[in-house]
Design a protein around this nucleic acid. Sequence first.
RNA 1: GGAGGCGUGGUGUAGUGGUUAACAUAUGUGCCUGUCACGCACAAGAUCGCGGGUUCGAUUCCCGUCGCCUCCGCCA
Length: 586
Amino acid sequence: MQRESAGSLRSTDIGRRVRLAGWVHRVRDHGGVLFFDLRDRSGICQIVVSPTDAASAAASRLRPEWVIAVEGTVRTRQEGAKNAKIATGEIEVSDVALEVLSESDVPPVLPSANDVPDEAVRLRYRFLDLRREEMQRNLALRHRVLQATRRYLDAAGFYELETPMLTRSTPEGSRDFLVPSRMQPGAFYALPQSPQLFKQLLMVSGFERYFQIVRCFRDEDLRADRQPEFTQIDIEMSFAQQEDVLSLAEGLTKSLVAEAGWDLSLPLKRLTYKDAMARYGSDKPDLRIPLEIIDLGTLADAFDTPLIQGALAAGGVLRGLRAPGGAALSRKQWDELGREIERFGVKSVPYVIRDADGLRGSLAKALQPQAQDALIGALGLAVGDAAAILAGEDEKVSLALGVLRLSFADRFALRKPGHRFLWVTDFPLMEWSEEEGRAVSRHHPFTHPNPADLGRLEDEPLAVRAQAYDLVLDGVEVAGGSIRIHERLLQERIFKLLGLTEEETRNKFGFLLDAFRYGAPPHGGVAFGFDRLIMLLAGASSIRDVIAFPKTAKGTDLLTGAPAEVAKAQLEELRLREMPPEEAKR
RNA sequence: GGAGGCGUGGUGUAGUGGUUAACAUAUGUGCCUGUCACGCACAAGAUCGCGGGUUCGAUUCCCGUCGCCUCCGCCA
């Protein structure tokens, strides 16, 4: 007899003899009649065993998480015993034959429990944690979106091509995971941070449209939305302009989010990097928050305080941000807000509060009385609102207000329901790295500059815009990409600006530059952070909740115990030796 | 690298410088014929993460350490 899904039985199945198999979810033993819920991937179904049934003795032995097979008859539940809360609540399976396939110890993570155990316990017993309905749902969604990706891109003429996982370390970007080579002692493979160079080579090779659902590796510190290995939907297209890539990515996004029941209307909103920073203080603004940063430059003269006047004299800006209901913030809370933006060189948050009598607050005294109404109007302050007002260097003021914007949203629950996508375009090509004392690529060194800015590449490199774009969803970067440089000479100019010597570039990227000598098509692409996207679609608060076997914040796997020491013989084979701690210190 | 939070029966929590560490659930036994987070009774179950210090006495206070989480730095 063919096995069926427990969760898919309905009243239309009444009278049928069925065979089910799965896990014992909950047992309700009344001494006489006994009920239990049988759970499989599809859901749960109530099995009823009468004291006169042959299976009665076996049923009373059943415990949670035993694996059993059941053969029985689907029947309607008695009137008044139907359960509208579950999909199979109209029916039950009776007159059963029971077979225990596997017993279970008392499980540390009980899939039927309401309380979710501590995450360390969940990760240690991940195979049990994954039985929980939430995790089953998340990974099922992940599966569906993966399949939708393949369907969409295949239909759009993309080849799914694979690239090496054992590759070479390249400069720029994040720290590599290294794999020592046995056959080339002293040499190392690197696991790919992304298949960037390979997908460009595939364009040179004439495949025209490539995609890959690919694991990427970055040896950096973890976050709720960052794992050392993660999955990208990697896409590259030849003979494509930025518009072609954006439009492809939008179409794909629409079909992917539809798997979660989201309806997306295209085209998506767009914002330049410059505007995003000015209006939201972030290159990945959360547009669910109905707050915008306001430039107060025209009111600058109304503030009689050296802090503001000094900042403006130094070429700075004056900007404010409304905090709806912010009058309720205590002195202590303003201090907390100040600590959140300390890293931008702000010592405390100057603010004003509008109450029934007018403005008060740390900055109100410095404001000329006749300018009060103008300030209230500019910031849109209602009675009960407050506003943070910062003066200083453009980028720092923006970023600081961007942080406050998020903080206000948290404190006053300002985020509107629903979801907001947007493209952020025209990123700067390069940015200054204090640490390295040179310009570094903001995206990666193969990003094509905006053709309109090519003339000032050497003179004002930091002002050059890139043909690079990010897709942002609710304040999270879910995809990013660029048009690539396919001209060898331009690529060499960029390397030079980045301070990479010819020898270095030949050594590290020679193969790519070589390839570009033999007819490289213009090309560009985009990569989706797949786990993050699923996290947002699933409404999960951590990327770990959409990955079957994730790592902890310290990069360990509590299930397998990785990373672990290896046998001396393995190290010898690789000609590796542990460095004494005192030597490793420096 | 830095900051913060958490760590108490299997699990989730409460709690206290002082007798026997409480509750829920899970577990075991018994009772129970329509439950669905079934119910009732009884029982068993805890080196209060680990190490050190303060104290007559520490699960509680202090220091260190380990583990988990969050954030900053970092992550093209």
